[in-house]
Amino acid sequence: MENIKLFLQAVIILFAAPILPGIINRVKAFFGGRQGRNIFQLYFDIYKLFNKGIVYSNTTTLIFRIAAPAMAALSCIAALIMPFGGQSGLLSFSGDFILIVYLLALSRFLLIISAMDTGSPFEGMGASREAQFAVFAEPVFFMSILTLSKITGESSVHGIFSKLSPVLWVENAPVLFLIVLSLFIVMLCETSRVPFDDPDTHLELTMIHEVMVLDNSGPDLGLIFYASAIKLWILGSFVSAIIMPRHSEIFWLDSLIYISGLAIVAISAGVVESVMARVRLLRVPQFLLAAFSVAIMAFVFQSLKG
């Protein structure tokens, strides 16, 4: 039975992830007074892309050709380490979030070098920005996880998630609130959403993530869309697990809570996207440093308490 559950979890993660961008789009459409795209639009997009041919730039090398499948594979693996609701992930060990962060870093590395591989100045621009923002976002993530680990006394994602409970919220509300804030900001930055990057923009000079995949086409582009949806799922899970702490031992109920938590995260991302403009590129590091100070504040509060 346990094995079936684990298998089911993996299937749900790998197949449900593309819904999240759909939810965000629907929220944006609601705010804009439009009917909006189908919630499953990304599935159709990926399906369509998988039926197309590929155009490779003739400056590119092998790196460009393996980057997209490798990125998708790395994201999937990182997602499988994540626990599902209250259940442990397929792989769970002490310090597994470090592996998750570094698997995502490897996929970022591949994205950057494949963008540089095309020799396009626009993609170079995006690559440079992606590398720069990660420098500010990663410490925020680690700082938040440090605080979480300190509150719960655990050092694996599953351990941390399973110790989170409504009771913990009563005792540590301010700290947890600050952590949610900083993790949410990190999520928006790492998944290239407003206010850091606008997935809808169509001016190459101002884009970050979208500009790096200008030369990807067909199945490759589909895999990259898929990988970023999974990344949103992974980072959203951290926020979701804190805002909707699990409180039952029933698999189905926990899973439902977990997924509805993710839906709430996606809706909030959509709301942020609708009510906020993108910040100027030069302001992004300051924005992330603000998130860093929020994370440090959470740690200081926690230390003073204990």
Binding site: G53, I54, V55, Y56, N58, G119, D215
Partner: peptide, 9 residues
């Protein structure tokens, strides 16, 4: 399908 080679966009 086809695989095309083209200049960078």
């Amino acid at each position: 399908n086809r695989v095309d080679l083209a200049p960078t966009w």
